[in-house]
Design a protein around this nucleic acid. Structure first.
Lengths: 228, 228
DNA sequence: TTGCTCCTCACGTCACGTGAGGTGGC
DNA sequence: TTGCTCCTCACGTCACGTGAGGTGGC
């Protein structure tokens, strides 16, 4: 007589729950090779081995259906290859999600969150994934850049309110630095510059800058740029 | 009168299914602000805005319950932070899964697969995650290493069959190269060397090397090493 | 006899998909 | 009148978790 295990013993030894073994029995994945008169399940060594294999395959993320088919002789390589592709797809989408979450962490109110998300959507429409990666890789520069932009916009705004002529040396200097920050953002990439131009053309400066620059200010700075 | 949308129109415009809108209504997440006499749902601008926000938040991987709570005023930062942690956990486990799958792709039969998985389990028991990462980072070396090991083991085996004494210069050379390959595997890391020793002590050379080296060959090489 | 283990239903999970059977609207 | 849109059930998904109510075994 070889050793047998009752369901609770096997569950404890294998690190699964009794319910899991019930489930495997119900779906026909692992039926105990014997029962007592009272109906108690009795698992033999072959059952234990099969359970071990089931757990191993399930641990690779296969569905119980796939596990059953593999144990039934379905060729492995294709299954593993498909599973690897699925995992890679999962990694890619989780990675993208992570990126978005990190960006959004800065938002402090629900309204600001949605503004940021809307901006991200516009942004994604106008830049390819590759371009976005290039921009993101300069993320630390970008934070400094945000502060630089805020300061420069404020400077331009105060000139406009003081009615400084666009051809005034001070405004020409603002225009030059403005151009420099754009240059810093695009990193000299023509594709990114093109996306930026489209973004402003389609949505206007007000939406593209989320209210930081209105149409008048944009025109004023643009005029100064033409004189640089 | 402001514009209203029937359920199909809204679904098409928002890129969701009618069933989804039914579901949101059923769980109380988005109830249309009006109905026609015949019971047709009529969505107003505020409903459209709410749907937009629901989709945005759900796109961040939040459950509909969490979405509802956030739209109800639950502070965002904690939610986003928790979500980011969850995503990171997901990335970590998918990453580990991916690693295992890549390793297992080499197995060609189900039996070989389980042998490999068993080996991986032993391996994981004896090396910390950090140590495994260190070993994996030398993965390209490892492939070359596998071939080197196979050749060296074959060489030692033929000496044993030819009854070359362990103190013979040829065997001393084998022992030196053996030590070199171990050195290459551990990368000079004492912790990894310790894990290796435990692995062999607990399971014996036969299982530790998956049959490549039996106890006798191990003793023979060990003897030679003592004379180096 | 008393715990302990086991048994078989059967509902719940999560965000919908997918019919089934029936009725307004142009 | 004929399509088309809409309505309300209601079951199915995936791998079990969690009771409920009842019975062998030491």
């Amino acid at each position: 007589m070889t050793r047998t295990w009752r369901i609770g013993e096997l569950a404890r030894a294998a690190g699964v729950t009794v319910r899991t073994l019930h489930h495997y029995d119900a779906v026909g994945l692992l039926a105990p090779s014997a029962r007592t008169d009272a109906g108690y399940r009795l698992y033999g060594p072959a059952d234990v081995e099969r359970l071990y294999r089931i757990r191993a395959l399930a641990g690779l993320g296969l569905s119980l259906d796939e596990v059953a088919r593999v144990l039934d002789g379905l060729p492995l390589d294709a299954v593993l290859e498909r599973q690897l592709e699925a995992v890679d797809a999962g990694l890619a989408s989780l990675g993208a999600l992570r990126e978005r979450l990190v960006q959004l962490r800065r938002a402090s109110s629900v309204d600001e969150l949605f503004e940021t998300m809307e901006a991200m959507e516009m942004f994604e429409k106008h830049f390819s994934e590759e371009q976005r990666a290039a921009i993101a890789s300069r993320a630390d520069l970008a934070e400094q850049g945000e502060r630089d932009w805020a300061a420069l916009i404020a400077e331009a705004q105060s000139h406009r309110e003081a009615r400084t002529p666009p051809t005034d040396p001070a405004m020409l200097d603002v225009a030059r630095r403005w151009r420099g920050l754009i240059e810093q953002f695009t990193g000299g990439d023509e594709g990114i510059r093109g996306g930026l131009v489209e973004l402003f053309r389609e949505h206007g400066p007000e939406r593209a800058t989320r209210g930081a620059v209105d149409a008048e200010l944009m025109a004023y700075v643009g005029e100064a740029m033409r004189h640089v």
